[in-house]
Amino acid sequence: MKKGWIAYPYVVWLVIFIFVPLLLIVFYSVTKTTDEGIVFTLEYFKRFFEPIYIMVLLRSLYLALISTIICLLLGYPLAMILASKEFRHKRVLLLLVVIPMWMNFLLRTYAWLTLLEKNGVINTFISFIGLPKMELLYNQGAVVLGMVYNFLPFMVLPIYSVLIKIDKSIIEAAEDLGANSRTVFRKVIFPLSLPGVVSGITMVYMPAVTTFVISRLLGGGQFTLIGNLIEQQFLYTGEWGFGSALSLLMMILILFSMAIMSKYEKESEGGGLF
């Protein structure tokens, strides 16, 4: 029995809210309104290749990369703890990872403002135990912290869901054959968890590259990222053409990195995002 009609609302949805906007972005990025009407132009793309904008792009990629690496280093062990049989308070820990996500993202970032500021909670504590106050807010470190804090669950959860599905008998077999725990991890667990790692990396890297709120609030507007640049074009300068060109290039870049990622993901099943 075919139920093709069930898909129609989704198709309509896709066309209206994804396909058409995408076309509009492409349209805006290659056209310009002059006195003679709308003409084709590539000047917005040309403008992007000026050193200043390339620098902004590189900074976005760099900061997102750092945050992703930190998320992976912090997230993997946490996912392992969550997935292990022996750990009793697993549910509580899992809840603690998820609960912050119930709160609004903007609100959580604002909270860091009050935590990190000069007379904020952390500095008050530092000076209470007799240490000099530190400049915690409005620097690159604060931006990375904001990204790691906000996107860590997106790294933990995919890895966790893959780890928990690993057949325990495979691990037992490896142990029976004389592998010590390090070898088991290196040769069995880690390779099997790779799909989760890959989707974790994608899920952290993508929003980190495109964020504009974190860099504006925690970076004090001094660390312009590609997201800020796009926002600026739409909200302040009204240069939709340049903004669209930037968004388009950003999308191509993400598509490109996802293609590389999916190469690693192909063979193994489950846990993958795409």
Binding site: I52, V56, R59, Q232, Q233, T237
Partner: peptide, 14 residues
């Protein structure tokens, strides 16, 4: 001149 203003501002902040 808005484009010039925007460019200057981006250069300063970036």
């Amino acid at each position: 001149a808005l484009e010039i203003y925007d460019r200057i501002w981006t250069e300063i902040k970036a």
